[in-house]
Write a protein that binds this DNA or RNA. Structure first.
Lengths: 371, 371
DNA sequence: TTAGTTAGTTCAGCGCACTTACTTATCGCT
DNA sequence: AGCGATAAGTAAGTGCGCTGAACTAACTAA
């Protein structure tokens, strides 16, 4: 599943080695410590090769020997090796909030070691880039280990090279954010849309399976990210997941985007708050009404992609309850059992950290081949 | 784009060789004949390696030397090598029609060399499998070259192993079609849903670009297939593209699936025909009304996936015209410019052959790594 | 004729993972 | 306590696939 139809480029022996290294790291990452022999069995590589690769990774400090396991069986007891989750740290940024930029130092297990944030105060364009740089330097000073790289979840449309094509709030158009940060800090930098980093975070550190995953982020706006067949979906122009301005109600409110009845006009956090707080409004019923509308938008997507999970991320007091239930129900009413039986609709357990943690996953995947 | 986040398995040197072979074949397949030196430049491999690989492929008969090109430049004139499109043939089957099973002998360039079909006459279960086997033997006898493999576009849900999970018309449930045919004919067999083979056919032999592609097949039922990031989308349970029973109109007609207002109740070929032929009906207006409904279903999908192309496949007299125009218009009305500007909505030029040709692409991709 | 350019081949060498053979370490049985 | 069985890990040698450098072949330009 997900194997590209066409070969993508030349393949060196060096690539094979990196690939195998990543394979072992991945195993340790997902299933915890194991002996060299276990790794050999799991990967299909020989014990010899595994020993060699493990030796290399020990030298790099990426893994550590943990001694023999407690229970003993026949034969020589194995020496467990485990991922050294604090051997390196990763800097993850979340630029999706309108009033602040937040970031964190994250270890290889996705756990946040330190946080920092700066106020945007209307900074735009180059000034906003400078602010990002400031935030990174602060975080770098806070990191107590070598930094593996910088991951950024940015609002707007971001291309695969890490250039922000268009982010209205920060007045970024074709801003080569990754290149700028890479130059300033001499570290690998990976930038993606905030909903895309969120889906990566959920995919790797949430409780999600291996089927198709969609994360819907509800904040000031609405955006989504998809992991399909184990890969992040970018879309033709890098704009996959931009569903905030799909029309849900031709007779609805006028939207900032100049059209009417966009999803954002009913689903964004501020709109939802206003709606439930309106005089004489029945909160739960209002939320359910929005959930139903959301379900109508999601139903075609669920059927088309045969998704495994949909995760809502945002203010739990608004999303988790009547809104989610109504969306779930509507999706099931509007799709075939084959599409909906394998589907789970839930909220995220990662909370506000999805984006920074997902940004760290960008680096983990890019640098170590792990996710 | 589309690179899997996680490594997929052990990688042998042998795999690298196959990969590089495929890389060269792919180059010849897409851009036509080239010299060894051209191939080396395009692939990044050295001339030495390319010569070696080309030698191997010459021995296999997959490519042929074509002599020097007409125009002459400085230096030793190159010897062009080109894909030998008639060195092998592929058997492609289309089982999606209710009354017949059709198949074709296809060459490596996707051009149909011979056809054959058999009537279903209500055959079901094992009897239907026997009919497929009969069709294959006929086609095999018609093939004048070694057969590279058998590709099948089957109705219903098909898993990656080529087992038909569920195909009501043929009464197949968990029928291991690929395994049965592989055993009977001792050839590689690849089976996929008919909409999925159709999208492969369109992706490889249509005039489509490299962005996300959706093919919507309208026949007795409605189904879709997606190529995203260069890979066929399977979905969690292999049911991606099953959008025929998405509800479009809660007040609509009762559907065979026991729910109401499914897309198939307005969009299938028989329904469309009945609708335009109804006494007093305004044909074009009716078709446009259906197109609008279709656009409403597609809009969320377009926005979510940032598709590059949507191709409608089916009876042109129904689809190409008011229906397509209305769908196109509705999609644009209901999505942001960023989602819709890069999008083209059109009908297929491959006609009824999309499925068989796409089935051949399954084999091309699986056996030669070409698409 | 001579120099320059491009295509394609030959050859030695390198990196990687494999196989085979060995050492080390523990358990269960006599 | 001693011995065979079992398993983990190490060492040495083999084969495969790619590469760089050097070489031959064939042509153009001056």
């Amino acid at each position: 599943m997900g194997r590209p139809l066409r070969p993508r480029g030349k393949l060196l022996q060096e690539d094979a080695r990196r690939h195998h290294r990543a394979l072992l790291l991945q195993q340790l990452f997902r299933d915890g410590p194991a002996s060299r022999a276990d790794l050999a069995r799991a990967s299909g590589l020989t014990r010899v090769t595994v020993s060699d690769l493990v030796g290399e990774m020990l030298a790099d400090g990426l893994v550590t020997e943990l001694g023999a396991p407690a229970e003993s069986r026949v034969g020589k007891p194995p020496t467990l090796v485990g991922l050294a989750v604090d051997s390196h740290h990763i800097i993850g940024l979340d630029l999706s909030e309108t009033d602040r930029m937040s970031g964190a130092v994250v270890n290889l297990a996705g756990s946040v070691q330190a946080r920092h944030e700066v106020h945007v105060d209307g900074a735009q364009g180059d000034e906003a880039v400078a602010l990002v740089q400031h935030l990174v330097s602060e975080l770098r000073a806070m990191a107590e280990r070598p930094v593996l790289g910088i991951g950024v979840g940015s609002p707007g449309v971001v291309d695969t090279a890490g250039t922000v094509i268009d982010a209205p709030n920060l007045a970024w158009t074709d801003t080569p954010l990754a290149a700028r940060l890479a130059e300033a800090f001499d570290l690998p930098v990976l930038v993606a849309n905030d909903a895309n980093t969120a889906v990566l975070g959920e995919h790797t550190f949430g409780e999600s399976g291996d089927g198709g995953l969609m994360v819907l982020r509800v904040g000031t706006g609405v955006g989504a990210g998809f992991v399909l067949g184990g890969s992040l979906l970018h879309g033709h122009l890098g704009a996959a997941g931009e569903i905030g301005h799909v029309a849900v109600d031709p007779d609805g409110e006028r939207c900032a985007c100049s059209r009417t009845g966009c999803l954002e006009t009913i689903l964004s956090a501020p709109r939802l708050r206003r709606r439930v707080a309106a005089p004489g409004a029945d909160g739960p019923a209002e939320l359910a009404a929005v959930g139903t509308r959301l379900g109508e938008v999601l139903a075609p997507i669920v059927a088309a992609l045969n998704l495994h999970e949909i995760v809502l991320s945002g203010p739990a007091e608004l999303l988790d309850g009547p809104l989610l239930d109504a969306a779930d129900r509507t999706i099931r009413e509007r799709t075939m059992p084959i599409s909906s039986t394998g589907l789970a609709v839930r909220t995220s357990k990662l909370g506000e950290d999805v984006v920074v943690v997902g940004a760290a996953v960008l680096v983990l995947a890019g640098e170590l081949g792990v996710s």
